[in-house]
Design a protein around this nucleic acid. Structure first.
Length: 826
DNA sequence: ATATACACGGATCCCCTATTTCC
DNA sequence: GGAAATAGGGGATCCGTGTA
């Protein structure tokens, strides 16, 4: 049988002691296909340097005899080959040792602790990764496959009979082909419950949303007419059964939720267990499997056999959050940013307190959440596809992995063209040692001179750290033990480290990424139509390039190299300092610089001259280092630190000719300041940048102060929001948000690590002399008057004080008004 | 444990000394 | 008058959140 096939989900099983892969995908008619295949299983033994042929021969004989009886099966070494390979850039002789079962490779490796063998590698990749590497059936790429149709066959224990697919095929041949993108079948879901702790309350309803399909399942019957999408069931048990039934009937490629790894799926699982319902969502009727990801923190991934369960929150977190405006990753904010739609209004109440006529709104709300989740999936589908294709790992994993894992997957799947044997994961002890290593020196930040400036340009290095890694060949495999003459050398913490000039595989891969990304980016710029796929791939490469530096400095990395990471920062530092010097030499004046960007005054030079100068600069830069023009700006503002004497770093505001603001670091971009302070500061900055002087801004602040004093400010504007970053009991310093969290706990308001805690500072009620701010914390719903002095002196003043100081205005006097001191009145 | 370092700034913690309170 | 409690100052530390 011959057909076209696109792999979506990968799984494996053992049959008669051997490993088989089971790939679920679609053909061009959108039929669901299961492909069964296998591959050779092996590990590498890297030999010591000066072994004689005789020694190698007898070693091979010895290894060929290895046979293990463990875990109820027999695994043996099936054959041994000798190969010329590279390991960390060095040529080595290595034995390719084939064995029966991948899961036993570790035990085989234990038997290979021999004096002739230098290192053992390649047995910690996982069978699925190993298989993809071996057979190159890459996820979400099209293939023409040939194979044997399994039809009620007893081969593999009758696997095709229990599997709900159109065809089950044992693979013989495959060829990669071009085909249009997959049009995936997607079903989004969302549940509503009374209790937020997993499984501790009833599930009131479950919504489902797919193409031409919307449904809210509930056991709550209300009077009157109900929307057609609501379907009643008898009770909660039937609710779960109906959910299973619909998922099975629709049988989507992707079952999508938002925070569903951490909430919806485990919740349904817990309730199903309570009612002794088998949650047979898998194509093989199996229940979702939950894997602990991370240590104890309840971080779980829910895997359903054959149907890819996607938790969009996780993907958005790693792939997008750093470029987002949203201050939280709540469905509401994220949907608003990407879909321009919000959640429906519905204030959460316990179901017993919901009025009869409110239920319909609740159903609508529940359905809308699934609708938004579905919309977000469509929005991110190009990114999910491209990430999966670039990393070459199953979408289930790629959608959940952090950036370090993505970088590593990319490396592992690109080692072959360098003939490299993969490095192993660090052991627990190694990780411990790495983590104890001292921090190295990072980026250079130039202390600005506070002031309001006119006519500014900003240059920055494109993919700065990535370009440095490529240009200076910085990696674990290129690090030299001794300083050599013809090498890239730099001082790190008083010691010189050197890197070979012979290109290493890691910098070479990175070079590829950066060059391809540049190509995509320029294509995107020149083309008139929006190409979502190109944009997504460009974005995937950008993220990879940016994460490459962090990867080498990350203690959990296979290719961890602190020296390379430190050298990257050091070379980058040198580059930016050189650039600053050149810019100043040309007659410009540098105001500020951070890591890879430089802001400078044009000093009467024109924009054209500056662009020409940029080209001139670029000609002199080494390797792939490149400066680009970030933009020209009409005005820019830099302030002092709170201490008052020195210029504050990582804090500035710019306005371009079109009036567009670019604000960095100021309180107005920080979510842990109250809205009022943020808005006031924002307006002050805007007025000053627009006007070029402080007079309007000052009046505005005066008005605000008056309003605060007259209690004309609504409480909502005064709420301070701070995230709870760890369990309450672990806090050493009991700060205001911890007090607020404790109050919420007492009121049984669900809080968890990660919850944004909102509170306001109320007037003192205790009358104690020595009162801390936390003693005046009140929850937003709690009755009380806001503390005027606190909001003036701890929110508004700190937000604007340093700005007005640029114009030598002491705002503190404004606040005090008639009074001279404020502390004295206590 | 789940990419890195640099940076700001609020609030508490903690130690020290001076002052007040109490017997 | 002397011991204990409290106030207040100031640096260290904790903590959250940014920039790059």
């Amino acid at each position: 049988m011959k057909l076209q096939f696109i792999p979506i989900d990968y799984d494996y099983f053992d049959f008669e002691g051997r490993n088989y892969i089971k790939i679920i995908g679609r053909n061009e008619q959108e039929k669901r296909i299961c492909v069964i295949d296998t591959c050779e299983v092996y590990l590498w033994a890297i030999l010591k340097n000066k072994l004689k042929q005789k020694q190698i021969d007898s070693l091979i004989k010895k290894i060929e005899k290895i046979k293990l009886d463990i875990k109820g099966r027999t695994t043996k070494v099936e054959k041994v080959e000798i190969h010329d390979k590279n390991f960390l850039g060095k040529q080595v002789k290595a034995l390719k040792i084939f064995a029966t079962n991948y899961k036993d490779l570790h035990d085989i490796a234990d038997k290979l602790d021999l004096k002739e063998i230098e290192k053992r590698r390649g047995y910690d990749l996982g069978f699925i990764t190993h298989y993809i590497l071996e057979k190159k059936i890459l996820p979400l790429n099209w293939y023409e496959i040939e194979g044997e149709l399994l039809n009620n066959s007893l081969e593999f224990g009758g696997i095709d009979m229990v599997l709900d697919v159109d065809f089950c095929i044992k693979l013989n041949k495959l060829k990669q082909i071009e085909n249009s993108a997959l049009n995936p079948k997607v079903l989004a879901y969302d549940i509503e419950c009374d209790e937020f702790r997993i499984g501790e309350g009833e599930i009131l309803m479950i919504s489902l949303f797919g193409e031409n399909f919307k449904k809210v399942l509930t056991w709550k019957k209300i009077k009157g007419k109900i929307p057609e999408y609501v379907e009643y069931v008898k009770d909660e048990a039937e609710l779960i059964e109906k959910f299973i039934e619909y998922v099975r009937k629709i049988s989507p490629d992707f079952l999508v939720g938002y925070f569903s790894d951490g909430f919806d799926l485990p919740y349904i699982k817990a309730r199903a267990e309570k009612f002794k319902i088998k949650l047979s969502l898998g194509l093989d009727n199996s229940q979702p499997k939950f894997h602990q990801s991370g240590m104890g923190k309840g971080l779980v991934t829910g895997k359903i056999n054959g149907i890819v369960h996607i938790d969009l929150l996780k993907f958005i977190q790693t792939a997008y959050s750093q470029y987002m405006q949203s201050e939280t990753l709540s469905l509401n904010e994220v949907a608003n940013e990407f879909l321009n739609e919000r959640k429906k209004d519905f204030k959460f109440k316990h179901s017993s307190k919901i009025e009869e006529d409110e239920w319909e709104k609740y159903f609508e709300y529940n359905l809308h959440d699934s609708y938004l989740t579905y919309g977000l999936f469509q929005k991110f589908w190009p990114d999910l596809i491209e990430f999966t294709r670039v990393m070459q790992e199953p979408i289930f994993d790629v959608s959940r992995n952090g950036m370090s894992k993505n970088v590593e997957d990319f490396i592992i799947h690109n080692l072959e063209r360098f003939n490299e044997i993969p490095e192993k994961r660090p052991t627990y002890d190694e990780i411990g040692q790495r983590r104890q290593r001292e921090k190295y020196e990072g980026a250079f930040v130039l202390e600005p001179i506070p002031g309001l400036y006119e006519k500014i340009a900003i240059f920055d290095f494109t993919s700065s750290y990535g370009s440095v890694i490529v240009t200076y060949n910085l990696s674990k495999s290129t690090l030299l033990e001794k300083n050599e003459k013809d090498s890239y050398s730099i001082e790190i913490g008083g010691e010189i480290v050197s890197f070979s000039k012979k290109p290493g595989f890691f910098p070479e891969m990175l070079k590829d990424i950066i060059i391809r990304r540049k190509k995509f980016k320029s294509e995107l710029k020149s083309s008139s139509t929006e190409d979502a796929v190109k944009r997504a791939r460009s974005n995937a490469f950008k993220l990879l390039a940016n994460a490459a530096y962090g990867y080498q400095g990350f203690f959990g990395a296979r290719y961890y190299c602190r020296e390379a990471a430190a050298a990257t920062a050091a070379f980058a530092k040198k580059s930016i300092k050189d650039a600053i010097e050149n810019i100043n030499k040309e007659g410009y004046k540098t105001i500020y610089s951070d890591t890879d960007s430089i802001a400078f005054l044009l000093n009467k030079k024109t924009e054209e001259q500056t662009k020409e100068f940029l080209n001139k600069l670029n000609e002199k830069l080494p390797g792939i280092m490149e400066l680009e023009l970030e933009g020209f700006f009409k005005r820019g503002l830099w302030v002092t630190t709170r201490g008052g004497e020195i210029g504050a770093k990582k804090k500035y505001a710019l306005v371009d000719e079109k009036g567009k603001l670019k604000i960095r670091g100021f309180e107005t971009v920080r979510r842990d300041w109250c809205t009022l302070a943020r808005q006031v500061q924002n307006k002050v900055i805007r007025l000053i940048l627009e006007d070029g002087n402080e007079s309007h801004a000052l009046n505005f602040v005066k008005e605000t102060i008056k309003k605060i004093k007259e209690r004309k400010i609504s409480k909502e504007e005064l709420i301070i929001r701070t995230q709870l970053k760890k369990p309450i009991s672990e806090y050493k310093a009991i700060s205001p948000h911890v007090v607020a969290a404790k109050k919420m706990q007492e009121l049984k308001i669900p809080i968890d690590v990660g919850t944004l805690i909102g509170y306001y500072i109320a007037e003192s009620t205790t009358g104690k002399k020595r009162e801390l701010i936390r003693d005046k914390v009140k929850l937003p719903d709690e009755k009380g008057e806001y503390d005027i002095v606190y909001y003036l002196e701890h929110q508004i003043l700190p937000a604007v004080e340093n700005i007005f100081q640029v114009f030598s205005i002491n705002t503190k006097e404004l606040v005090d008004g008639k009074k001279q001191t404020t502390l004295g009145e206590f």
